[in-house]
Write a protein that binds this DNA or RNA. Structure first.
Lengths: 254, 254
DNA sequence: GCAAGCGGTCGGCATTGTCGAACGACCACC
DNA sequence: GGTGGTCGTTCGACAATGCCGACCGCTTGC
């Protein structure tokens, strides 16, 4: 792959940096974080501002993400085949299981949520589309790791951040779990990401077997697991069924 | 404002182009649309692909938007003060009026929807966050036009596309309506955007009076308007009240 | 009141991206 | 089954482009 364009890569790095911390970032902070001279960083920000990818706080002069990105993000959703193919089956799965449903795919060392169906009974839940979840502490993430050797290799070299007392933090333990996932064809997690919460997920494949995403349910531990702290078999069956249905739908469509 | 960076502006133009049409675009089409040599367009796309702002269809070689944009879009939402300040009042307005509520702001000659509350009774509605609505055919858009001279000047020089039989298509008629909006402090629309649908909106201001957004309700014509085809006064009052509440919240916070 | 930090500006230098032509793969149509 | 057209991609020479570090005016916090 011949030379990528430097300024565009830098602009993307600026946007990624602004996306972290969800607050306002100063020019000095940005240029220091990326190791760029102030003048260079300012030129990039000035240009991103012109195209409304970045906004500047009039009072403080600090920078934040711009409105044009919101429209680009939803335009991506409209064109995303994984999402459009899985919407119907997600609703079905949510109704049958009585739990909230998420579709995730890999992005940048994390799980990107591309679709989210609220739990049928509950009303107020925060919209999760576009959120990033940890790979090693969610059922969705374990599925993506289990079927992507490059990805699991990358994660193994990284520190596994502990989110609860139950989070898997050693590479060896994670590898054992991933082997189980590959053997079983589905993954689960109980209180490894959030106390009191558990989840189950299964892989979505394209023809040829490549795993492009995962579908899963999540909810209170006592709703997802039985008395022996094992995922309820009927829920596992519902999730794997939905995953296969979406995979078939991806294969059929185009 | 000294020189913007050419390649970044071009990359942004590519992304905007890909966002239109929601489908897959070929390299030749992109380079032709932007008036760039094929080689140059390819370099930009190659770089955008590296940072996952763009994906390429393995089979056809065509390009589409990438997953990283989804996360940037939702990160923008998290940091957007207009949205966070208006969430509570939007829920209240939806409950009182019984209609769906939208918060809009100006982006690139259109209305960008930054928040959306479903109609309380109805269940299945498509999520509207991130959508772009026409300025001249929606109540939200009329509000934004009425209080932004630059914007209304820009729109006046543009062809007003007709969406229904009732859409305002002449600059003179639009200017008359905008004067009424300024006089009344709110805007309405009936079947100018979609047959059978009507809407009411009012401006959201920051301290100093600058209009930064609009909040409005929309629904079936016979729910929004009375028998004389005029917006129901009690709904107008609820909308303007909500708009002022959000404006006060913006003033108080930060 | 001073100094340290901020965001913003400027202009010389050379690195960087631009550009048009050529390449191989693919498809569709004679 | 050739064959023309179109697709995405590569390459290398040129010079226009964007990079960079020093400098400016301003606010903020000692």
């Amino acid at each position: 792959m011949p030379g990528p364009i430097q300024s565009i890569e830098r602009a993307a790095a600026v946007l990624r940096l602004l996306a972290r911390g969800s607050g306002h970032h100063g020019l000095a902070e940005i240029s220091a974080s990326l190791g760029l001279p102030k003048g260079t960083a300012h030129g990039i920000l000035r240009t991103l501002q012109r195209v409304e990818f970045v906004e500047q706080d009039q009072a403080t002069g600090r920078y934040r993400l711009g409105a044009a990105l919101l429209h680009l993000g939803t335009s991506y959703l409209d064109a995303n085949e994984l999402r459009s193919r899985s919407i119907n089956w997600s609703d079905t799965l949510a109704a049958r299981s009585g739990q909230e449903v998420r579709i995730g795919m890999h992005l940048d060392g994390a799980v990107l949520v591309v679709h989210h169906v609220f739990r049928p009974d509950d009303t107020m839940q925060t919209l999760g589309i576009g959120a990033m979840l940890p790979l090693h502490a969610t059922a969705l993430g374990k599925v993506l790791l289990a079927y992507d050797a490059d990805l699991s290799g990358m994660v193994r070299r990284r520190e596994l951040t502990s989110l609860t007392r139950r989070t898997i933090v050693t590479a060896a333990a994670l590898e054992r779990v991933l082997a189980q996932v590959r053997a079983a064809g589905w993954a689960s997690e109980a209180e490894e990401c959030m106390p009191g919460e558990a989840s189950i997920a299964a892989p979505i494949r394209v023809p040829g077997g490549l795993v492009v995403g995962a579908i899963g349910i999540s909810g209170a531990v006592d709703r997802i697991c039985d008395s022996a702290s094992r995922p309820k078999p009927e829920l596992v069956e519902q999730v794997t069924f939905a995953a296969e249905a979406v995979s078939r739908s991806l294969a059929a469509g185009s």
